[in-house]
């Protein structure tokens, strides 16, 4: 029951940041909000595993933590240079 309550409170935080993601004035606000949502979802996936009683699926949150970092840096690099490659 406790994990369910925590899952719901995380959803509330998700909603708050989603407002910033949609309403954010500059692109940097949106990128920051997307990155924070990624972190929150990483936590939510692992807590969901505990709620279902099968916490073996934490691998997904590891993958997501890696992907979230790479994606954010890729978006920022594209915004900086206008392309992803070196040439």
């Amino acid at each position: 029951m406790m994990f369910l309550a925590i899952l719901f409170s995380i959803s509330v935080c998700f909603l708050l940041i989603l407002i910033r993601l949609i309403a954010g004035k500059t692109t940097y606000d949106r990128i920051l909000a997307a990155n924070s949502i990624g972190t929150i979802v990483v936590l939510a996936i692992s807590i969901h595993g505990f709620y279902m009683g099968r916490p073996e699926f934490i691998d997904i949150s590891i993958v997501y933590a890696l992907i979230n970092f790479i994606g954010t840096v890729a978006v920022l690099k594209l915004f900086d240079k206008g392309k992803l490659g070196d040439k």
Binding site: V63, Y64, L66, I67, N68, I70, G71, A74, V75, L78, G82, K83, L84, G85
Partner: peptide, 13 residues
């Protein structure tokens, strides 16, 4: 979430 985002970004340029 990972590879297709980055592919989209590469195409975006």
């Amino acid at each position: 979430a990972g590879i297709s985002t980055i592919l989209f970004l590469a195409a975006l340029s």
